[in-house]
Simulated scan of single mutants.
Amino acid sequence: MYVREADGERAVGQYPDATPEEALAYYERKFVELEGQVSLLEQRLRGGANAQDVAKAVSALAPTIPTANAVGDLQGLAERLGRLAETLGAATEKQSAEAQQAVADAVADREALVAEAEALAAQDLSKAQWKQVTSQLDALFARWQTAQHSAPRIPKKDADELWKRFRAARGTIETARKGFFAQLDTVHRDARGRKQTLVERAEALAPKGAAGIPDYRRLLDDWKTAGRAGKKVDDALWARFKAAGDVLYGAKSEADALENIEFSANLEKKLALLDEAEPLLKATDRTAARTTLTGIQRRWDEIGKVPRDEVRVVEDRLRKIEAAVRKLEDDHWNRTDPEKQARSEGFAAQLHAAIAKAEDELAAAKTSGDKARVKKAEEALAAQRAWLDALG
């Protein structure tokens, strides 16, 4: 089997015991395989494969094409491979520049992480919200680890220097955090001791029953200023403290219940007394109203206490009746006060004189025909009459 080339024919092999067509097909397949290798290299370069790796493959494949035992356009295939080799130089330079830029970007990203960590460490850590600060620091460290594993490898000198700064910032934060929680443990321990004492004192009040409530309230005031002992400890101690108070208030509730039963009869009596007294709301005779009210007030005091939750209801009704009687007396006094009457009569005389004068001025104004003067005189007269009506 031969292949035609520019300088003649070249034998590419033999294929015994086969027809010419079968032999030709075999050597054409060999050519297709070579062409496939060239196409694959072209695709790899277009797909962004490393140009140096492609160049090595081209160098290995190029010498085999001119002497290949295959039938096809070997010359054209060699030229395609040559053109591919020509583009590899530019591709290598481009990829090298991109790789350098990627490294520079990776260094910049790592420097940004360091700057964030140093800014976090530079704040006033005595006022830090440690849950938030710890979360931020953990997120920065996770981003650092991701950059190490997935980003382009940066120069060792840069990597070491940046890690040293990141580690120093992280160490500053960790030292401050440990100091804060060590101090917090001391505060919690002191608060725990104070609250434990308060719980024991509250539990000791149980034999006093309702009488122990004032002491319990004072202990509650002390509890509010005792500080925090940590959530779990606080919750447990508070449960005991509250249970001690529940014992006292439970005893008080029982006493109140018994008291309410005892005072229920008094309530019925006072309600009947209020029904008897409420007609005084419409009374007009102040003397009779005061006499009736005085008798009701005396009987009211003799009845005694009513259930606690009814005290305000009945007291408010009685206060309303007392206010009505007091108003009758105040109104009478205002009407009969000699000093006030004298002042009223003197002022009334002055008003009558002023009205007479205003009427004369109005008549004179009308005679003159001066409309402005008439209007002014009418307004003055109206004002004086209004004062007299108010004095009534």
Rank of each mutant, 00 (worst) to 15 (best):
Q101C: 06
Q101T: 04
Q101D: 01
Q101S: 04
A102C: 03
A102W: 00
A102S: 06
V103M: 08
V103T: 09
A104L: 07
A104Q: 07
A104K: 09
A104C: 01
A104W: 00
A106G: 08
A106W: 04
A106C: 03
V107N: 09
V107Q: 07
V107H: 02
A108C: 02
D109E: 01
D109S: 12
D109M: 08
D109C: 00
D109L: 00
D109Q: 07
R110S: 05
R110G: 00
R110W: 01
R110E: 00
E111K: 13
E111Y: 03
A112V: 02
A112T: 06
A112G: 15
L113S: 14
L113H: 03
V114W: 06
V114D: 07
A115S: 04
A115D: 08
E116G: 07
E116T: 10
E116V: 04
A117L: 08
A117T: 06
E118S: 09
E118R: 09
E118D: 08
A119I: 02
A119M: 03
L120P: 00
L120N: 06
A121K: 08
A121E: 08
A121G: 10
A121C: 11
A121D: 03
A121I: 06
A122H: 05
A122E: 13
A122I: 06
Q123L: 02
Q123F: 01
D124T: 07
D124P: 00
L125R: 14
L125M: 10
L125D: 11
L125K: 10
L125Y: 10
L125T: 12
S126W: 01
S126T: 14
S126C: 09
S126E: 11
K127L: 07
A128C: 02
A128F: 04
Q129H: 13
Q129I: 01
Q129C: 07
W130C: 09
W130F: 11
W130K: 12
W130S: 12
K131N: 15
K131S: 11
K131L: 09
Q132S: 15
Q132M: 12
Q132F: 09
V133L: 15
S135M: 05
S135A: 14
S135H: 07
S135R: 15
S135C: 03
S135D: 12
S135P: 00
Q136V: 14
Q136Y: 02
L137A: 13
L137G: 04
L137M: 14
L137K: 11
D138H: 03
D138P: 00
A139W: 05
A139C: 12
A139S: 15
L140C: 14
F141A: 14
F141R: 13
F141V: 05
A142F: 03
A142P: 01
R143D: 07
R143A: 15
W144D: 07
W144F: 11
W144M: 12
Q145H: 08
Q145D: 09
Q145A: 10
T146W: 04
A147Q: 12
A147I: 08
Q148W: 06
Q148N: 11
Q148L: 05
S150D: 13
S150H: 13
S150G: 03
P152H: 13
P152Y: 13
P152N: 14
P152T: 10
